[in-house]
């Protein structure tokens, strides 16, 4: 229980630090936001208009007060308005969350499915050629940016074979290539962890004993070894999922997938600060919660963690 409380306090502290970082992005931005907003609205920013808007936005208050006001708004779910068209940022982001979740979910399926299948396969025949090939491929994929994998996939599957759409979110099968692109990277990370753990687990005396007692090798591995390797895998899955959400930016841009990542990139190009801030904040929040959740699962799976 105390462990839980401490973990929660730490999470809140991290979130606060995150919010300070995100808020200070505004300070790094050259120029005056009020002037920027007026300009983009097609109005000539006269000193009077700028001053009025500054007062309306609370930009004339001292920084700590601005931060407190901003944080309060954010906690209430008000992420401000976009510079580009003055529409509420929260609604714009929420409209795009489903697409990103769909992509990240499909990618997670690819990552976990691929990693499990391949690692079990490799663990069952530790000296097989397949295992070695898989190991090399895993390493290779880990070093290559996802969009490069994506370009190669598009060239072969979509352009060469004309089998799948190269982008967009229209047909149901449009998710396959982006999910594969994003999932492969995640699978590589997971696989490296699982591979070492499983190899270790298979060598454990009780797994060998189980096998000697006549338990089929497949069950021996699946039941005993997997349980042994699980804690690490859970921790890794948390990290990988967070990476997937972050990696979606590039993949969404390449495949013209209408998710948050695409929104963020276009906002960055337009220097639309409130949207950029909301994106960073949301990614951070999702990651922190994911990692906390993974921690929680880890504790449930392996009581030893709590005592650390």
């Amino acid at each position: 229980m105390r462990w839980l409380l401490r973990r929660a306090a730490e999470t809140v502290l991290v979130l606060l630090a995150l919010s300070v970082l995100v808020f200070s992005l505004a300070a790094l931005t050259p120029g005056d936001p009020a002037e920027e907003i007026l300009r983009r609205g097609g109005l000539q920013p006269t000193p009077a208009a700028v001053a009025a808007l500054r007062a309306e936005l609370g930009l004339d208050r001292p920084l700590p007060a601005q931060y407190a006001g901003w944080l309060l708004d954010v906690v209430r779910g008000d992420l401000g308005r976009s510079y580009a068209d003055r529409s509420p940022v929260g609604a714009e982001i929420m409209a795009r969350v489903p697409a990103t979740l769909r992509l990240a979910g499909a990618a997670a399926l690819v990552a976990v499915g691929l990693a499990l299948t391949v690692s079990l396969w490799a663990a069952l025949r530790p000296r097989g050629a397949v295992g070695r090939v898989v190991a090399v491929v895993t390493v290779a994929v880990a070093g290559v940016p996802p969009y490069i994998v994506g370009i190669l996939l598009i060239s072969v599957v979509a352009v060469g074979l004309r089998a799948l759409p190269t982008g967009g979110d229209g047909a149901p099968e449009a998710v396959v290539l982006p999910a594969l692109t994003l999932g492969l990277a995640g699978a590589a990370t997971l696989l490296r962890l699982l591979r070492a753990d499983l190899a270790q687990a298979v060598g454990q005396p009780f797994v060998k004993l189980a096998a000697a007692k006549g338990l089929p090798a497949r069950r021996a591995v699946v039941v005993h070894a997997l349980r042994l390797a699980a804690p690490n895998a859970i921790a890794a899955t948390g990290v990988v999922l967070a990476d997937l959400a972050a990696g979606a930016v590039v993949v969404e841009t390449l495949f013209a997938w209408p998710g948050i990542g695409q929104l963020a990139v276009s906002a960055i190009r337009q220097r639309d600060l409130p949207v950029v801030q909301a994106y960073v904040l949301l990614t951070g929040l999702a990651t922190v919660l994911l990692l906390a959740l993974a921690d929680l699962c880890l504790t449930a799976a392996d009581p030893r963690v709590r005592r650390r």
């Binding site: 982008g167 229209g170 047909a171």
Partner: peptide
Amino acid sequence: IPDANARVAALRAGEV
């Protein structure tokens, strides 16, 4: 579909 490549892809896939 702002991306030129994705537009043509959508056309070829029969999506539009």
